[in-house]
Structures are given as C-alpha cells and as structure tokens.
Design a protein around this nucleic acid. Sequence first.
DNA 1: TTAAAAATAAAACACCTGTTTAAAATCTAC
DNA 2: GTAGATTTTAAACAGGTGTTTTATTTTTAA
Lengths: 208, 208
Amino acid sequence: MRQGTKSKILDAAERLFAERGFADTSLRLITSHAEVNLASVNYHFGSKKELIQAVLMRYLEQFMPLVDKAMQEHIESATPPNLDQVFSSFIDPLLEMNQVKKHGTAMFLLLLGRGYTDSQGHLRKFITHHFGEVLSRFQDAVRLAYPELSDSDIFWRLHFTLGTVVFTMASSTALKEIASADFNEELNTEGLIRKVIPYLAAGVGAPT
Amino acid sequence: MRQGTKSKILDAAERLFAERGFADTSLRLITSHAEVNLASVNYHFGSKKELIQAVLMRYLEQFMPLVDKAMQEHIESATPPNLDQVFSSFIDPLLEMNQVKKHGTAMFLLLLGRGYTDSQGHLRKFITHHFGEVLSRFQDAVRLAYPELSDSDIFWRLHFTLGTVVFTMASSTALKEIASADFNEELNTEGLIRKVIPYLAAGVGAPT
DNA sequence: TTAAAAATAAAACACCTGTTTAAAATCTAC
DNA sequence: GTAGATTTTAAACAGGTGTTTTATTTTTAA
C-alpha cells in the first residue's frame, strides 16, 4: 500500500476537522474519505477524542520547538527585544508548517482555533500540559520587551492575541472572499499573518 | 402559567448554547430544562437553526440600535472621535445587556462567539443581513478616527477586533479561573471589557 | 355555549453517532 | 511452510439526533 491506514486517517481527519469542526465531523465521514474501515479509527487511536489530539500533535511537535528556540534567543540576547520582534518570531515557525504539508499553516491555525473554542476546551488542557514551558518562555520574552506590563496584563493580552489569531484563521476563508470581492485584494496565509502582526504588537504594547 | 412556552424555550436554549455550543446542545436537552414538550420547539420556531437565530435576535435587536446611535453621534460630531472613544462606545450597549437579563452581557458575547465560529457560519450572514448598516456605520466612525487607514485595513482590523472579543468571551470562564488562581484577580465581565478596550484601540490604531 | 383556532402531548419516523465484537485476511518470523 | 501476531473487515450494539404525525387539550371569539 502507498500510505498506511493510520496516516490516511490523520490526513482525512485533519482536512475535515478544519473544514467543519470536530463535532460536525463523524468518524464515518473521515473513514470514507480516507478509504479505510470505520473500526480502524478506534483500533489505531482508541477514540475520536484521541484522534483529534493526534491530528494536532503532528503539527505541535514541529511547531513548538521552533517557537521555543526563537524565544530562547530573545531571552538570551544581549539587547532586549521589542514587541514587533517577539511577535515576528512566529512568522517562520508558522510558515514552516507549509513545508510539513500543503496549506499546513492555514490548517494548523484552523485546527488550533477550533480546539480552543469547541466544546469543553479539552484541547486547551492538552496543549498547556504538553507545551506549558514554551508558553511561559513566550511570556518571558514579552516581559523583556515591555517590562512595565504586569504579569496579569501580560496574561490577558496574550490571550487577546491568541483570540485574534485563532478567530481570524477560523474565519479566514470567508474573510478572504469578502476582501477579494470588496477590495480586489488577493491575500494568502502569509499575507494575512503579516497583516496581523502589527495589530498584535500594538495591542500588547498599548499603555495600561 | 407563569411564563410562556416560547420564552421558556428561549431561556433554556440560551443558557445551554452558551455553555456547550450549538452542536452539542440537543433539542431534548433544551426542552427538558425548559420543562416543555419536545415538539414545541419545531412548533414555535420551525427548526433548530431558527431557534438559534431567535435566541441571538433577542439580544441583537436591543444591542444594535444602541451601537448605531453611538456611532451616529461620533459621525455627526463637530470634532472627529479618536479610536479609544469609538471603541468605548461599545461599553454601555454591552453592559445594557445585563439589564435585559442576569449575566446577559457575558451570554450575548458568548453566543456571538459561538455563532461566528460554529459550523458554516450561517450566523455571520444572518447578522450582516439584518444589521449591515450598523456595521458600516461603525466602519465610518473608525475612518473618521484614523483617516489614513485604507478601507481594506479597516476591514481586516475590525475583524481582528471581533476575533479578540469573541474568543475572549468564549473562553472567559476558563480564563477568569486561571487569572483568579494565578494573580488573585477577580474579574467580572465589565472589568474584562475595560481591559480589552485599550488593546483593541491600540491594535486598530497601529501604523501600517 | 359552541365552533374554530392555537397549543401541547406522546409516539413514531428515519437516520446518524461512537464504539465493540467476532470473523477473516494479511503480514512477520521461525 | 506454517504458527502467531497484527491488521482489516462487516456487522451489530446501544443510544442519540432533528423532525413529523396524530390525537388531545386548552384558549379564543362569536
């Protein structure tokens, strides 16, 4: 066989989750698109919940080390970074997801968004459990760039930021269509990322 | 009877939608909480989709005229507004939702968030269809506050803003718990709104 | 009071859900 | 080549979904 059952399931699940969300994507839909037997999902992954985590894990374990490295560099640098630099550190890791797979960047952000907003947010716990240190390293870099900001304000503004990114990606298809019709502006994922960075940096850098 | 069937359904549906999302809330769950017959949902509202719209409509038809009035005042004012003023115009209409019903503000924003991110985004079309003029009046006020910003950038940044608000509210319960545990900071919905306004104004006002 | 309209109720409809079982097929190593 | 483990398959399981039908009750108006 060209491709193992497990990875055929992951590929189909990933596409469908991004398109329709987790709740609206049935295992039967996934397995029919993947052209595998229904029972193989439970055989290989245990449950639907674990399949969702496996789909995201494939991206996270590529993405997080790259972010971590960039934040480390900011922290260990002789001169403290500014917010634009900190946020721009996400651009390369995000675009690297396109190497992993076609439209990987958009898909990763889409999945992340769905994971954070869909029911119960069990993915939030999953992510903070597996990658908590990376997130706190990011927090450290922001603190260096804006030392006057309290820990509480850093916390809140970073979540505002996450919201902006995640929501924008979740609606990006619809938004790109409107922008294309209204402004004759064809934007790809990279263009969108570069549009949002100044917004985020200014927001986090706002006076309190 | 104390309360009509129709409004008992709306109240129960609203609470459950906000807690669990649209897809994860069944009509049977709604009707059992509302203590009405299952069939009464389809009798009074036609379908689940129309029930969702009715739940949001109850808030929107209170909220939108207030926003519209505030934006009109900015537009007709002799001196152009600044971005902080434009965004602060949302505070009162949002808090007014608490008069409509206990925890109304939080619930309204929660529902709005779910509606924008849940499947297919049919609520986005519903809102732009019913309240398109209000949204474009908001756009006009932003243009007055920041004339150098292109229409395309206004469009994108306002959607970034919507993302911030909607995502923050959708995760607000979890976030408030973390903030309470980590920073001994008890934040209510109004406090959260006042925390997010400077962030939004700075983001939209960022240089391009 | 009575006839028409509106609302409620219980039951059935047709279909979809994630998961499990048990048999068959395939692959792996001796 | 054959025994054993791994993987795939079809079928069933137990329960949930939104919606519709039919009958009954309640409300409204003449």
